[in-house]
Amino acid sequence: MENIKIVIDGKEVEAIRDQSVLDVARENGIYIPALCYHPEVEASGGSCRVCLVEAHQNGRMRLVTSCNYPAREGLEIKTDTDLVRRIRKGVVELLLSRVPDSDVIRELATRDGIEDTRFFKDEGDNYRYKCIACSLCTLVCEEVVGVSAISMLNRGYEKEPGTPYHKASQACIGCGACAYACPTQAIAMTDEGALRKIWGREFSMVSCSVCGKPYIPEAQVDWIVKTTGKERSFFDKCPDHR
């Protein structure tokens, strides 16, 4: 790990070589809006294009996504120029057209001074609820959970996350990591009593022997026991009572 210095909005800040510029900005309290990036998911980022910034390097300027742009010595980042604002506004307006019901996107839009989109909205057969097809859910499922129960289906305008053929997936362990990671809360997951519903499947939950609260799907316990060799009895109690 090589410590370097980069400049963000005129301020010199510490960074590690090849660290995500967005991470560096966040560590230094500099706000850049971002949706599809998660620091714990290696393959994430670069999809929603909301975190665009100007990167000045080797006498050249380009607009880059800060989430996956590597910090290098001599790099200067500008997060709030006319160009950045103009292009991000365009991106956000397009996202708003896609998911007009998303409060997260609406908030971003308001922040950029967009009241409503000028373009047609995805409604009727194209209604997409709140999903911006950023693929973070599928990356979490593959990279972090390791089950790959969901993946991106179709392509282009029709692209969306889902289980194969939209059928209940036997690979899914009901862990809900996808729903927790989703930047726009677009994945429906309901916990009712000891039953969890997600991706068209029902999962019975293990309850804590101390407080009695259902807290983890049985299928998830099976998966952890199988892949890590952890004792099954470990899951008798919820994290609060271990």
């Binding site: 670069g46 999809s47 929603c48 294009r49 909301v50 365009g90 991106v91 397009l94 996202l95 057209s97 896609r98 911006i132 097809a133 693929s135 991106m152 179709n154 392509r155 282009g156 305008y157 029709e158 692209k159």
Partner: peptide, 12 residues
């Protein structure tokens, strides 16, 4: 032909 990975191309 857009692959749909990024918002400007897919939705724009």
């Amino acid at each position: 032909e857009s692959c749909g990975k990024c918002a400007p191309c897919r939705d724009g």
